[in-house]
Design a protein around this nucleic acid. Structure first.
Lengths: 338, 338
DNA sequence: TTGAAAGCGGTACCAG
DNA sequence: CTGGTACCGCTTTCAA
């Protein structure tokens, strides 16, 4: 807990010089600069957080609201939290946790007390209550995920439509003429924002490319292995030679099970692409081509957006989409010549 | 972002009166007190975090170090984070996240900058590197979990030995004479601190109670379904009428599978108790008697300890064990009369 | 029971 | 290129 005046004394300069030498906010001669840095290092100096928050108007803290609800996929969620923390630290920011029960109370509180410079919103729901709060407070807020009503707020997410098109193009280019999209449970298409968009984007692109296409959901509310089996069976019976997957890890596993059971080999008898998977697909028993939803990418961009808005509170808000990336794992090949 | 002077003006009192009226640190007439509270509420006043940290010497922030590594059981981990956040909020504290890569750097940084009042350590390993750091810094640090070398540090955890004894007593009281402990994978008994203790406590208590007992591990490094099946089979062949389980969710599920396959009914043909499960056992296909490891209990106690140490930095450190609680779900009954 | 004012440890402006 | 110093907003003595 060394203080700035101790560093100043040790370096034989004034405290303002120490401040400037360390922040780099005004030119300092290389010599003094070194003396200051040395002294600071030697004393283990770090500016007092409270003093910095008071004097500067910057806290160097982001709040992270995360619902932590039961239905949240824990591993995925953890990756996002970790990615957010890493991205924040790269800019000398720390992460303050706001859990669900405090979503509203917490966002208001950190704003009123000036505890944080910006708020990052995780695990965004289509009708997320935090949208209203974000509009009501002055603290810059960035959503990682896109709610239905996103007027006037900053959002970051994967470009799902582009991802869907990329997947269709890939199998079309490989020569497939009949494809099937294996999707999420029924209810998801009513409750969530993106599954319907992916579905439509796939259908539209398939039409453009002249591909025959089918679509199937995989359960009612949660993924059901039986429903997946049926969906895969129907797709194959309809003559599909390529499957596009959009869903959780369980669904992927069930698809691979169903395919394997039939003695069909992925990457030769059938081609598969996973769209927007947010889990670690390399843990699946068979490696799949993937257009992943990458937590690091989303969080990096979110942090950049937050910093930009802190810098200029009046810059226009908007949705920022991440370009999809295709990860080839050999699960797409030319269709078997019939 | 109303300030204290605005509240003072609105209430017609001095700044210091506002401070005292809100903190309750000195007697204020009921009348002025109400006026102040009203004004503060009306203006949405919250003390500026930076100013409070500077002037008082209290940040109202706890750091939470969490490794977030791959082998961590994500759902369990999330429960602990949530429990810590809730416990902290009850005392007007927020949680600042320190992820793995920053474990050392972060703990030093928050200490040097006075960003937090105390540090909570999650997901403690037997040879945890954070022990050394905790000793080197002045910030009060509480471990949720007990490392091998815990000299001079504060730790909180379930009393595993007591839990083991409780489990043995329960089945012994129910009339069982031969029991089996189904444990963790081999490597865990070398790498981790508590599995061996549970094993020994079960064995000792069983001896005291005159019970025949066996023990089996369930894999090499990770839980293997086959190993579980074998372990269960051996136990039954040896005539065990009660099983004690100490392991992860997968192991529990595998045990229930193995038992069910044999047409044996839990709670009548065989009795089962789960010891120190940190996951949600109610999600298992069959409800089991449990002596759970409760995140809320651990975190509440950890926060209390942290506050106590902030209050008195010189109080003696030590291990604080939580008394085990038996949750009856009907899976223990008298052994079938042969 | 209340008020005035001295810091807390930085930042950044104003000088030089 | 460097130094002096007026705040930042609150807590907490010291006085009344």
């Amino acid at each position: 807990m060394a203080r700035i005046d101790e560093v100043a004394a040790a370096a034989g300069v004034s405290i303002s010089t120490v401040s400037y030498a360390l922040s780099g906010k005004r030119p300092i001669s290389p010599d003094t600069r070194r003396r200051v840095v040395d002294a600071a290092h030697r004393l283990g100096y770090a500016p007092n957080a409270g003093a910095r928050m008071l004097a500067g108007r910057v806290t160097h803290i982001f709040a992270l609201t995360e619902p932590l609800r039961r239905e949240t996929h824990a591993p995925t969620h953890m990756s996002f939290v970790l990615a957010a923390a890493v991205a924040a630290r790269r800019h000398d920011y720390d992460i303050l946790l706001l859990t669900d029960q405090q979503a509203s109370e917490g966002m208001h509180r950190v704003t009123a007390s000036g505890l944080v410079d910006a708020i990052l919103v995780l695990d965004v729901a289509p009708d997320d209550e935090r949208v209203a709060i974000a509009r009501a407070i002055t603290t810059p807020t960035v959503f990682i995920g896109i709610p239905d009503d996103h007027e006037g707020i900053d959002c970051v997410d994967l470009d799902f439509e582009a991802a869907a098109r990329l997947a269709v193009d890939r199998v079309a280019d490989a020569g497939h003429r009949r494809i099937a999209l294996i999707g999420q449970p029924e209810s998801t298409y009513r409750l969530s924002n993106f599954p319907p968009r992916v579905r439509r984007a796939v259908a539209d692109r398939a039409d453009e490319r002249g591909l025959a296409h089918t679509f199937a959901t995989t359960g009612e509310v949660v993924t059901e292995a039986d429903a997946v089996r049926t969906a895969v069976g129907d797709a194959l019976d309809a003559g599909a030679s390529a499957l596009l997957l959009h869903g959780v890890d369980d669904m992927h596993a069930a698809v691979l099970d169903a395919v394997t059971e039939r003695g069909i080999r992925v990457g030769s008898d059938i081609s598969i692409v996973s769209i927007a998977a947010s889990f670690d697909t390399t843990k699946l028993p068979i490696q799949l081509d993937t257009i992943p939803l990458i937590p690091e990418a989303s969080c990096d961009l979110a942090v950049d957006l937050a910093l930009a808005r802190i810098d200029d509170p009046h810059r226009p808000t908007g949705i920022h989409l991440l370009a999809p990336v295709y990860r080839d794992a050999g699960s797409v090949t030319a269709p078997p010549s019939v």
